[in-house]
Structures are given as C-alpha cells and as structure tokens.
C-alpha cells in the first residue's frame, strides 16, 4: 500500500522520507489497576502508516485537527520518538544511524509552537542561540561564537545587542525570531516547524511567515510544516498532507489540493473555514466530532462523519487512489462516487 513516497517524489533525492511510518502509544491504566479491575492493555495509534517524501528546498505541510497525529509526525521526523513501524530516512540513510552522527544530527532542527515555553527564561538570548553551536562544537572560540550569534540575530531581524536580554523582555513574535535563530545556529538544512505561528497575532504571523520564506530561499532550507490553519498552509506549502485520525488521507501538491480537494474530509475542512470574502454567508459545518483515536471506527476512520459513506467504507480501510498528482485514501473517490 505505501507507494506514496517513491511514485510521487519529484526529481532529486528527498531530504526526508517516511515509508509507512506508524507510532503507537501505550495508554493502558497501570498494571495493578488492570489486575484489580480487569482492564486490558490499550494502545493509541497516533500515526498510521504515513508515507511522504520532502524534496530539498521545499515545504511539506501536514494539516489536520487536534489529535490527528500531526505533531507526532513532527517528533518522529527529528527522532524524538522512535517509530513503532515503518522507516524514516534522512538523505537516504535510516534516521536512527543519521541521528547517531553529530555531523548529520546538526543538520536538522526544530521550531516549536509556544515561544514562551520553548526558551529558557533564565538564559540570556545570546546563550540560547549559542547553545547548539557549543553543543555540536561548531565554533570553538568565544569571539567566533559571539560574532556568529550576532549574525544569526541579524538574520532573523533582531539586533546584536538583543543578545544581552532575557526572553521575558521580548514580545511573542520576537521570541519566535529567537527560536528561529537558535534553530538556524547549527546550520541545518532541514527544519521541523510545529505550529510556529499559531500562538501569534496575524500581523506578527505575517512577519514570521515572510521571514521563514526569505530564509528558505537564502539558505535552501527544507521545511516540514505542521499547522491546523489551512490558509497559512496554503501560503507556505509546496506539498501537502491532510491528516485525519493518524492517517494521511490526501497527499499531493498544495496548489492542486486547494484547487480541487478530492477527499470528503479535505472538502469539508475547506468549507468550514471562515473566509474574508464571504461576508455574512452560511457555511456548511462538518457534522460530528473527531472520534477517539483509542477506539477508531473500523474501515475508513472518517466514515461516521462522511456524507459519501456506504457499507464498504465502514468495513474496509481504503488504500490510496491516484488522481492526477494527488493520492487519496477514499473508496468514494476510487469508485468515482464523488464528483469534484
């Protein structure tokens, strides 16, 4: 089934490739409680056979509602979680061996959602930014490190003198700039950005998104971008994956998916978004809510909310169907029951 990677990937070796990656979490109650009250082991399938490939210098976005597993993919991609199944490759080598080599390890980094929690409040900004440089031993002398930190701060639109200040002296947007400077300090070419702007106001979000685009062009960065905001995703993505209950249900070029969404979930998600153009108009809300990933529905995980569901959808898990450049996991699309 997971043919998503190889077939879709454009020319050039992907920086990161996931092949049928799954991640399970044990969410059972403690052993003693299970023995006493007769509960069973429970596992949560946070990511279910996800496959994708990110070519160099491009942005791959994962979008979905809370609990769909997109942040778990982010953590899998930098090795914070080992996968329970499948394979992740960084520049063609298994991620695990790549991580063991500092030379490769430093070439990936992460930007987190909350700039208030991801910076140590007791460190000066210059030490926060210098930490990866010191940890990887990239530069040795204090003077070199100071110059490099100044250069990094300039690159993200801060002044060298800002290095003497503490995180609490900065606004949310400025702190996110500090996070970006820190992520860039190990000279990475692959960045995982987990909701980097969702804690920010829109005007600040625009500044950060523009900055990230500039840096991508200048430094040939490759991004894995995680977000729940479809408008932001549309703005940044080259390739896009829509996740629902741990599965990538639609995968392909961002422009193509926004032009003609195939999967019923993607369509409903796009319709659910309030848009500036449609003043006063009524939207079609998606009915129902995301089911618990501990007990996902059988068959297609979306079938209880899907307007196109039939008996097959509730029994059989759909494989991927190719439609142009897009892969869709949906029986209705496969059988031609959906009219785009």
């Amino acid at each position: 089934m997971p043919d998503a990677g190889g077939a879709l990937q454009p020319a050039g070796e992907p920086v990161l490739e996931a092949i049928g990656v799954s991640r399970l979490f044990d969410v059972s109650r403690p052993w003693l409680q299970r023995v006493l009250s007769g509960g069973r082991r429970q596992t949560l399938r946070a990511v279910d056979e996800a496959s994708f490939a990110i070519p160099r210098g491009t942005t791959f976005s994962l979008v979905g509602e809370s609990g769909c597993g997109k942040s778990t993919v982010a953590r899998l991609a930098v090795g914070l979680y080992p996968p329970s199944g499948g394979d992740i490759r960084f520049e063609g080598r298994p991620l695990r061996t790549a991580l063991a080599e500092p030379k490769l390890r430093r070439r990936m980094n992460m930007i987190f959602q909350d700039p208030y929690a991801s910076l140590n409040p007791r460190w000066r900004v210059r030490d926060i930014v210098a930490e990866p440089i010191r940890a990887f031993g990239i530069l040795k002398s204090a003077g070199q490190i100071r110059d490099r930190v100044g250069q990094l701060l300039n690159q993200v639109g801060l002044a060298m003198s800002d290095g003497d200040r503490y995180p609490h002296e900065f606004s949310g947007g400025q702190r996110q700039r500090v996070s970006i400077a820190r992520a860039l300090s190990s000279e990475p070419d692959f960045l995982v950005c987990d909701e980097p702007t969702s804690a920010l106001d829109v005007s600040v979000q625009a500044q950060i998104l523009n900055l990230m685009k500039d840096l991508q062009q200048r430094l040939q960065l490759t991004y894995l971008f995680i977000s729940h905001n479809l408008a932001v995703v549309r703005h940044v993505s080259d390739q896009l994956g829509v996740m629902y209950l741990g599965r990538i249900v639609e995968y392909g070029p961002g422009e193509e998916i926004f032009r003609a969404p195939r999967h019923p979930y993607t369509r409903l998600l796009l319709e659910a978004i309030p848009d500036l153009k449609v003043t006063g108009s009524r939207r079609t809300p998606v009915a129902g809510e995301v089911p618990s990933p501990i007990a996902p529905p059988p068959g297609c995980p979306f079938h209880p909310r899907c307007p196109l569901a039939n008996a097959r959808c509730s029994a059989e898990k759909p494989g991927y169907t190719r439609d142009g450049a897009v892969l869709v996991a949906c029986h209705a699309v496969e059988e031609g029951r959906s009219t785009p």
Partner: peptide, 11 residues
C-alpha cells in the same frame, strides 16, 4: 491587518 491575513483563495 487585512493584508497580513493569508487567504484561502489566492496565494
């Protein structure tokens, strides 16, 4: 403020 909002319609 309006200009800084990414749109779903156009990129």
């Amino acid at each position: 403020l309006m200009g800084s909002i990414p749109s779903l319609e156009t990129r």
